[in-house]
Amino acid sequence: MSQTPSELRYASSHEWARLEEDGTVTVGISDHAQDALGDVVFVELPEVGITLAAGDEAGVVESVKAASDIYTPVGGEVLAVNEQLEDEPETVNADPYTDGWMFKIQPADANELDALLSAEDYQSKCDEDD
């Protein structure tokens, strides 16, 4: 069974969002998603400084099995990307919730997090999909 940290919020498209103490939101893909993709070989991340709306395509994760779009779970300005993933995309497989984060965003409306799934609801969705 995949890990689903309870402090995170989840999009039905398998991204997670963590509200940080400074009000920014860190985004990555869930353990369930990286497991379904298999060995990640390439990650394309959004440009720092661009503004995205919730649900916009923010990048791509490519694995030995498939390529999958990454969507931003909340709208706002992209503040940072995880440059480590350029040289070490496999970090997404090894540690999707800490070292394998993808980008940080300054949310235009932090209340958008409330529309995301709780860990329990996300896990139930994943169990239904399997």
Rank of each mutant, 00 (worst) to 15 (best):
G23M: 03
T26Y: 01
S30D: 04
D99T: 14
P46E: 01
G59Q: 03
F103K: 05
G38P: 09
M102F: 11
Q123I: 08
E20T: 15
Y122Q: 05
S63C: 07
L52H: 04
P107H: 10
G100Q: 04
L116W: 00
Y122M: 04
K65S: 03
A115T: 14
A94T: 15
L116C: 00
V25K: 00
V74K: 06
V41G: 00
A36C: 14
L85Y: 03
V61K: 08
S13C: 14
L8G: 13
S30H: 03
E7F: 14
V60D: 06
V60P: 02
A110W: 13
T72V: 05
T98R: 12
L8Q: 00
D87L: 05
S6L: 14
V78S: 06
E47V: 12
Q3C: 14
G55S: 03
W101Y: 04
K125F: 14
H32D: 13
V48A: 07
D130Q: 15
C126V: 15
E7C: 13
W101M: 05
Q123W: 10
D114E: 12
D69Y: 15
T72F: 07
S118K: 00
G100F: 05
E128I: 09
N111G: 12
P89A: 01
A110N: 15
G59E: 04
V92C: 03
G38A: 02
D109C: 02
W16S: 03
T91C: 01
A36K: 10
A17V: 11
H14I: 08
L19A: 04
M102D: 06
V81Y: 08
T72H: 04
L19I: 02
D39A: 13
